[in-house]
Design a protein around this nucleic acid. Structure first.
Lengths: 174, 174
DNA sequence: TACGCCATGTAAATTGTTACATGATTCC
DNA sequence: GGAATCATGTAACAATTTACATGGCGTA
């Protein structure tokens, strides 16, 4: 997964590990994000395997390692991109809480759902902000991915709002 | 996460590790699933910590370890259930492929999306099957979680079907 | 001069999966 | 008798996060 993001980012332009992280947090964050602690070792591994090359530069006094994808890396990435998808699965904490909610009071469950709605609307507004400020040069595919994010958050927010209405209508169920 | 599922399952009824796995694959699988290799060690750890107790039985010739949640386990689980949610994030492979799809031919991308649609409709029919055969005694909360699954798969399937139409309408974009 | 951001990296811990190992029972 | 399922467990591996460590630049 991390190799995917790194090689993919480097097909856009040459970047440092730090910039890859920043690009991710401004674009793929809502469907894939990783920490520096995994980016730097992964870059070193990719370099060792000849999939990227590195140029050490000093930019306005700052030491940086700018990575470039090699032909071999590009070719491998294209093969990886066309490979069958791994099984779709999805770990979703709030649903576990809902599934076992007989162990909670109705009020506790509503608090959790509202907390999740806050998470979702924060993420949705982050994504909107990203669309307005960091996706100017984006291609159509990147726009589709961004659009998925918007639609996905809209779907989830509506779903939990409806659930709250249902829970409030029948507070004595169970 | 695994502790959540185990303790939660044991608030429903006493079960063996094998049965917990089976219950999961018949209920929470679409939002959380784990392998035997993590269930058994987790059960031993929970027992060591006094959150569950075990009774070794032989049931129709079969050796089983039936676990029961203790008062301490139940109390801890209730506290865990009411705790704030961890940040929502979500790793979604097909979206990474779409985001970097400039490295694919239009045909390759369509193949991937159709592959994902097949995954989704398989999962949706599994879930429907589960709803018909394994959720008879389910409480309302469990039904809400199941309903989320149906609605979620419907949303995703519709979204990718629309995307395919859009991609086929403008195959020369980029 | 202190804070925030830029920039790279390592080590430990976390949280699982996969593969292997073993053996019993049920159903065809 | 053989395959599928029941049933438990360990060891090796994988992928990642968190915390720590270091240091420079810009700016208020």
């Amino acid at each position: 997964m991390i190799d995917y993001i790194i090689l993919g980012s480097l097909t856009i332009r040459n970047m440092s590990g730090y910039e890859i992280r920043k690009l991710m947090s401004y674009s793929t964050a809502f469907f894939s994000n990783v920490s520096f602690g995994s980016i730097y070792p992964a870059l070193n591994k990719l370099e060792k395997n000849g999939l990227v090359v590195v140029k050490e530069v000093v930019d306005t006094g700052r030491y940086k390692k700018i990575y470039e994808i090699t032909e071999e890396g590009r070719s491998l990435f294209q093969d990886m991109m066309a490979e069958p998808l791994r099984p779709f699965n999805f770990r979703y904490e709030i649903l576990i809480r809902i599934f076992f909610a007989q162990n909670l009071s109705n009020q506790q469950l509503l608090t959790l759902i509202n907390e999740h709605l806050t998470q979702l609307s924060d993420l949705a507004s982050d994504l909107k902000e990203i669309g307005q400020s960091h996706m100017k040069g984006a291609n159509n595919y990147q726009k589709y991915a961004l659009q998925f994010g918007h639609d996905f958050y809209d779907f989830l927010i509506k779903w939990y709002q409806d659930l709250i209405i249902e829970l409030e209508e029948e507070p004595l169920e169970q």
